[in-house]
Design a binder for these strands. Structure first.
Lengths: 199, 199
DNA sequence: ACCTGAACACCGTTCAAGT
DNA sequence: ACCTGAACACCGTTCAAGT
């Protein structure tokens, strides 16, 4: 199913990440085996340890890939969006939900509890960058007067929670039947009401 | 650390569930081993298979425990809450977030993608019961005129997403620093605005 | 630097057999 | 019914040794 052997000219690390993501997507996290990965890539089972000290280290690196990917996706989505907060929010919501559905297992990994205890500096930083990107949207809205004033805890957390919750539920197929595969307009409208200036 | 042996007089099933939840909480899902569980309980490593055909079956049963627990918690929280929608929403939010933080690994399990493919009839039913319990809150609010009219997709999904998102983020320690350990008043206020009747 | 081969201490699952 | 013991085909991790 893959080029017989020797196909990685020194890019075993990248090949491992790509292979791990594939099996994660296709067979779930429980099926991910370092030895099988090595076999498929035509290297010895001990080779991966040169690039990832641990199975967990591979998973952490994969989560990092996820954060980078959603950040990038979001950035280009926002570049193509209009100027109003409503437009930008809608674009952001769309891209997050799309990412979540297309990368359900990765999203699960990104927010599984494991890597909280300072698993990797890089991972924490990437997660924070992504969160701040969402918060920026709110700050923009506040500057243009479309979002109520106040510290970010006041409304930013609400918006982020709503988007993350919806994305998560959609990804894990946990939305009630009546609400599946619906477009996001109603959700965005609900969020906008939550954000609306005071009077 | 536990009664040496023979302590399960026919309640191996319950003992396995309890043990599994403990190690899940204390050492994470990756550390859960059927053989170790059996060892700790003083039975042979093949004994668990009489009660759970599979490791996955044990995990499914554990997720079911989680849905039952949050449902029950929520029910008593709502019984003790006031009559207004604002009060009931606040009570519901509080109990969900508390559950999430106290049972982070269980929550992860409940909403991991695995059991979507009709893993177990019971599990699907429990998950649905819990979702409907949340939706009932909204319907109540609509009846009392505190929540805008319309089908549940309109606002119920928003409320559920917000609560689930916040609970999830809190459980996985992914809330931005400024927003951690804060009380829920601001979040509830944001949700209430999203729910408010039209004029 | 990057990888191999062998070794170690584990796994989950199955299945005959015991009580 | 409920459990045991042995067996099978896997794991992750480590470490000397090779190129």
């Amino acid at each position: 199913m893959q080029t017989p052997r020797r196909y990685h000219h020194g890019d075993l690390r990248a090949a491992l990440l790509a292979g791990a993501e594939d099996t994660l997507r296709e067979k779930g996290p429980a099926a991910l085996s370092l030895r099988e990965l090595a076999r498929d890539l035509g290297v010895s089972h001990a080779a991966p340890s040169r690039h990832f000290k641990d199975k967990q280290a591979l998973l952490d690196a994969l989560a990092l890939v996820g954060f980078d990917r959603i950040s990038r996706t979001m950035t280009t989505a926002l570049e193509e969006a209009g100027e109003s907060f409503a437009d930008r929010l809608a674009a952001g919501a769309r891209s997050y939900v799309d990412f979540a559905v297309a990368n359900a297992e990765l999203l699960d990994l990104m927010y599984s509890i494991k890597h909280t205890p300072e698993a990797s500096e890089e991972l924490g930083a990437a997660s924070q960058r992504w969160t701040e990107q969402m918060m920026n949207l709110i700050v923009e809205g506040q500057r243009s007067g479309e979002v109520r004033e106040g510290p970010l805890e006041r409304v930013g957390i609400g918006v982020f929670s709503t988007l993350h919750g919806y994305a998560t539920l959609a990804a894990s197929d946990s939305l009630p039947e009546e609400m599946r595969g619906q477009d996001l307009d109603e959700l965005v409208a609900y969020i906008l009401r939550g954000c609306a200036p005071e009077a």
